[in-house]
């Protein structure tokens, strides 16, 4: 049993992969909470695809894919922000248009490159086992910046997510805060690109927070549990993929999905099992509604 863990740990590429996935799981888990709470899953998916031409261009230029990816991610974030301000284009359509256009640009750029095919797979599906020491360091630096910005603006992001009307009445620059959040999502996607690739990134950003939300009603706990779920899925995925000889990216995502399904069934308050039991006990409200005693009248002024 112990060999299950110690044997892979003997390989430096597994060690690097584990460090990488812990960093990525942490940053995805934190930023993902706001993606989920703001209903930005589609935007996140779009960002994951629109960074593709940036990746291709960086590859052609022989530079780190992070540079190109972030440039296109930032471009998308700004594009979505600006386009969705127009009343004639709905936010959804704006995202859809950019999503398809940028991904198509990547496809066209790739079609001009001979001998690119062999690397295409690792770009689309990631290659966490192939990360270099430099990649890990770059990931760490970006992750620290993203997490720092998220925590500095945590209360502002929370107000905008919960009550945009209040945020505006308080004079918060809601548009600018939204743009910063999109940029954080873009940066998160960029650092996650090498672990699971374009197609599966969304699973790292959306699944752990969705799992955490099932387990708690508090934002702070949700963020902590989301990180735990993301890191656990990542680490478990790498070990399983080593032993089962499966693709690391896909295995990580499936491990995260398994955690989500477990939470969906067994979560204490929101889980299917507990909802079922509560109903049998006579709680007819599906939404775990426990009326608190209405008696206490306020004590006046």
């Amino acid at each position: 049993m112990l060999d299950f863990i110690t044997e892979p740990l003997g390989y430096p590429f597994i060690q690097r992969a584990l460090i990488e996935i812990v960093i990525v799981g942490t940053v995805c888990g934190l930023v993902g909470c706001f993606v989920v709470l703001r209903g930005l899953a589609f935007v996140g998916d779009a960002l994951a695809h629109t960074v593709f031409p940036g990746v291709v261009l960086s590859y052609i230029a022989g530079r780190s894919i992070m540079i190109g990816a972030f440039a296109f991610g930032a471009l998308t974030a700004i594009g979505i922000g600006v386009l969705s301000r127009s009343r004639r284009v709905s936010a959804d359509s704006a995202v859809g248009v950019l999503f398809a256009a940028f991904f198509a640009l990547g496809v066209v750029l790739i079609s001009r490159q001979a001998g690119f095919k062999k690397d295409l797979g690792s770009l689309l599906f990631g290659n966490v086992l192939g990360v270099s020491r430099e990649d890990v360091i770059a990931t760490l630096i970006i992750a620290v910046i993203v997490i720092a910005v998220l925590f500095l603006l945590l209360k502002e992001f929370t107000v905008v997510a919960f009550d945009a009307t209040m945020a505006r009445s308080l004079g918060y620059p809601v548009f600018a805060l939204d743009l910063v959040l999109l940029l954080l999502v873009a940066a998160t996607i960029v650092v996650s690109l090498q672990t699971v690739g374009n197609i599966l990134i969304l699973a790292l950003i959306v699944t752990p927070p969705a799992t955490a939300r099932l387990l708690t009603d508090r934002l702070g706990q949700m963020m902590a549990l989301s990180v735990a779920a993301g890191v656990l899925a990542g680490v478990a995925g790498i070990f399983i993929s080593y032993h089962a000889d499966t693709a690391a990216g896909g295995t990580i995502v499936l491990a995260g999905t398994a955690l989500f399904l477990l939470a969906l069934v067994f979560a204490p308050n929101h889980g299917l099992l507990s909802t079922f039991l509560q109903r049998r006990r006579g709680y007819h409200h599906v939404h775990h509604y426990h009326p608190i005693d209405e008696a206490a009248p306020p004590g006046g002024h």
Binding site: L37, T158, F162, T165, M166, S169, L170, R213, D217, R218
Partner: peptide, 23 residues
């Protein structure tokens, strides 16, 4: 000047996201 926080808004029930994880 809104950023001085002089205005308090009490929204309609329907406009609040009651699923948001806050106490």
């Amino acid at each position: 000047r809104r950023n001085e926080g002089h205005i308090a808004f009490v929204p309609q029930r329907e406009e609040v996201n009651w699923d948001f994880p806050v106490s």
